[in-house]
């Protein structure tokens, strides 16, 4: 309940901040810059194998919360996304190994429109994205845990297709290029963790610079956006993401997220 209240406050603050910035506007398309704020809630269905945690395959479900903004300046877009997922991992064979998990993702992308053609119903953007991704699970009172964190740069593509005057589809794809991959040590635990177990920052950045050779990922998003009023849009989105590494042992994580929310321009 407390988190709900905090999120509502953050959303209201973001909206009021936007109103202060933009003020009363004439026609939206005529503006040189626009701010687009969104908030979404939904569900997540995931599949995991992390051999540093367990040899078993896990399926998970959880609550998804997302918020962020897109700042458009002429042909550029600055996108900021914040996502949080919390739920339970389960193995199909062994119910007693149910495990709570949390996922977090922070993205900051700078995109440029390519091949602007007046009158076309589609727009396409490419650019770079920084993201910090956290996946953490624990079983019992820290009797067992597993994690993957990635802080790195991705190549990103985003396209928007207008279906009719008030509806459009947006698709985004991001592929990691290079970053710091943080995984448990070979045995899941070592002296460094023992000494720094209360220092999350030290542990969260204890990784190695990694490229596609050791960490493979992709994140795809399809959103259906429909205008409700002059500034308010309804969003329905599906996110699919995959992360895989064999450092230090096999890790495969496949996420499906279904969210709905609102988008205010």
């Amino acid at each position: 309940m407390r988190m709900k209240k905090q999120l509502t406050i953050i959303f209201v603050l973001l909206l009021s901040h936007h109103v202060t910035l933009v003020g009363a506007q004439p026609t939206l398309d005529s503006l040189p810059y626009k701010t687009n704020i969104f908030i979404q809630i939904g569900t997540s269905v995931n599949y995991l194998k992390d051999k540093s945690f367990s040899p078993l395959n896990y399926r998970s479900g959880g609550l998804v919360l997302k918020t962020g903004f897109v700042q458009s300046i002429n042909r550029y877009k600055l996108c900021f996304n914040l996502a949080f997922v919390s739920g339970n991992l389960k193995n199909n064979q062994v119910t007693s190994f149910a495990t709570p998990f949390i996922d977090g993702n922070v993205e900051l992308a700078c995109l440029k429109e390519i091949k602007k053609i007046e009158g076309r119903n589609s727009k396409k953007f490419v650019g770079l994205q920084y993201n910090t991704l956290i996946h953490f699970m624990q079983w019992g009172d820290m009797d067992s845990w597993g994690y993957l964190m990635y802080h790195g740069m991705s190549a990103k593509y985003m396209g928007t297709w207008r279906i009719n005057g008030s509806k459009h589809i947006q698709i985004g794809v991001a592929i990691p290029l290079a970053g710091i991959l943080v995984r448990p040590p070979y045995n899941g635990y070592d002296y460094f963790i023992e000494q720094h177990q209360d220092n999350f920052i030290r542990l969260a950045f204890r990784g190695k610079l990694t490229t596609w050779n050791h960490y493979q990922g992709v994140n795809c998003r399809v959103s259906y956006i429909s205008q409700m009023t002059g500034r308010l849009h309804f969003m329905l989105a599906y996110d699919l993401s995959y992360q895989g590494t064999d450092v230090p042992q096999k890790f495969r994580y496949f996420q499906n997220q279904f969210t709905l929310g609102f988008n205010r321009i």
Binding site: F53, S54, P55, L56, N91, Q93, V94, S96, F97, W139, G140, D143, S144, W145, N187, G188, Y189, E194
Partner: peptide, 12 residues
């Protein structure tokens, strides 16, 4: 020596 995390088997 420190002990490992709890490890899991398919039979529970």
């Amino acid at each position: 020596s420190s002990k490992s995390m709890r490890k899991f088997l398919p039979n529970g």
